[in-house]
Design a protein around this nucleic acid. Sequence first.
DNA 1: GCCAACGTTGGC
DNA 2: GCCAACGTTGGC
Length: 140
Amino acid sequence: MRYWLFKSEPSAWSWQMQQKAGAKGTFWSGVRNHLAKQNLSAMRSGDLGFFYHSNDGKDVVGIVEVIREAYPDPTAEAGEPWVVVDVKAAKPMPKPVTLAMVKAEPKLAKMSLITSARLSVQPVTEAEWNIICKMGGLKP
DNA sequence: GCCAACGTTGGC
DNA sequence: GCCAACGTTGGC
């Protein structure tokens, strides 16, 4: 089981929209970065990810579960290498964890969210996962 | 709205 | 293969 972080601008795709998509979930499209693509490819069914609102909010607002592993991005041009995974909303954060809270926690200083701010799909370590769940009011 | 970080493109 | 120019992301 691995952990991830998905970034989205709420104006493009918000947590509320993800929740409305329900148990069937949706594909996570639009990744056009090779490192992010590698991360998508490494995901397995059942992996969990934080849903992070960039720009507007700047907070972890929920948890999604990977329900289908990487396959070609339906929104990509023919011949392009991009992939998507399907995710569904698993549970909301009782208390959203803001970027400011992450930055204020020394144990999270090495998170990709801080060190690779522009990467849209990031790995999260188990230790980081547990800390943020706790900050968000979830039992580990 | 600005700007830093960073990835990509294209000229050489 | 280098690197300057340019575009995009995302925090402030």
